[in-house]
């Protein structure tokens, strides 16, 4: 990558950050994360006795002694689950507008008049959006990880890995936002379609149940097809949980099949963007 390409990429990423900072929802996200961090930092007291047993004090109430490892894993698991579900919805909601806004008439023409290939504009924006969400996720996760690590002496790397996985799933879902935005230029439609994929994932993951419920082979095949074609948000959530709790991994299929989905959707978006008239 030459210096000019780097400069353009950096400008696009920085612009996405600037736009995100101008939106209140970004600050809401940061505010919630900060409250959670402050809660664990000042309100919750963890006393570790003999390196193995811990008691938690909350607003003066002290819980019974717990295995410190189990306690840290439980809290990390709860935060990871929150980040993966509510956080993912918030992330899509907060950032969905950052892509369609580029296609606004009067703005896109000026961007396209610059000596920058179209795919570079879109990828720069995509990268910027990922960076915004990565900053949010890592701010919360690293702070919590440090607080618990320092307070208990337990350092669970699975928690850090789960945040990377959360970002990975967001990266896949963001390709859907881009594709819909390229075709419709609408934040609302882009958000709705992405939420739709997120919501259908847990249903499609229950294949055994669906097979029993569906009468025709055709409908069963369609459900199977959809399951394999769409990103496996639900299954990846299960992988995230296992990472935090340190449980053995099952199949890696949800990971690579979702990556293929993301790559295909991103390539389609870039192709469609190259061909569009503004």
């Amino acid at each position: 990558m030459n210096s000019r390409t780097m400069r353009v990429t950096w400008a696009l990423v920085r612009d996405t950050f600037r736009e995100a900072l101008a939106r209140k929802i970004f600050w809401g996200f940061i505010g919630c994360s900060t409250l959670l961090i402050l809660f664990f930092l000042f309100i919750m007291r963890v006393d570790v006795a003999e390196g193995a047993m811990a008691t938690i004090s909350l607003f003066g109430n002290t819980s019974r002694g717990e295995d410190v490892n189990r306690l840290v894993h439980q809290v990390h698991g709860a935060i990871a689950a929150f980040l993966y579900t509510a956080g993912m919805f918030l992330a899509v909601f907060a950032s969905a507008g950052l892509i369609p806004s580029v296609f606004e008439p009067g703005r896109i023409e000026l961007l396209l008049s610059k000596p920058v290939p179209r795919h570079h504009i879109l990828l720069g924006r995509y990268l910027g959006n990922l960076a915004v969400i990565a900053a949010n996720i890592f701010y919360l996760v690293i702070a919590i990880w440090l607080i618990f690590g320092i307070k208990t002496g337990v350092w669970t790397y699975g928690f850090l890995l789960s945040s990377v996985l959360t970002l990975y799933v967001f990266a896949v879902l963001l390709t859907v936002v881009i594709l819909v935005a390229v075709f419709t230029e609408s934040t609302v439609v882009a958000t709705m379609v992405t939420f739709g994929i997120m919501l259908i994932s847990p249903i499609l993951a229950q294949q055994g149940v669906l097979d029993r419920l569906l009468s025709s082979q055709w409908s069963r095949s369609m459900v199977h097809g959809l399951y394999y074609a769409l990103p496996k948000v639900f299954d990846l959530g299960a992988i995230s949980r296992r990472l935090v709790l340190g449980d053995p991994m099952g199949s890696w299929m949800p990971l690579w099949s979702s990556a293929i989905f993301g790559l295909v959707v991103l390539a389609t978006s870039l192709y469609a963007f190259e061909r569009r008239n503004y």
């Binding site: 000019r4 400069r7 353009v8 950096w10 400008a11 696009l12 920085r14 612009d15 600037r18 736009e19 900072l21 101008a22 806004s101 606004e104 008439p105 009067g106 703005r107 023409e109 000026l110 961007l111 610059k114 000596p115 920058v116």
Partner: peptide, 21 residues
Amino acid sequence: HRFPTYMTGHSMLDFYGALSG
């Protein structure tokens, strides 16, 4: 034109200048 309203005059010129190389 619809210049992004979150930009200042300075940051807008900086952004489009960077895109121009």
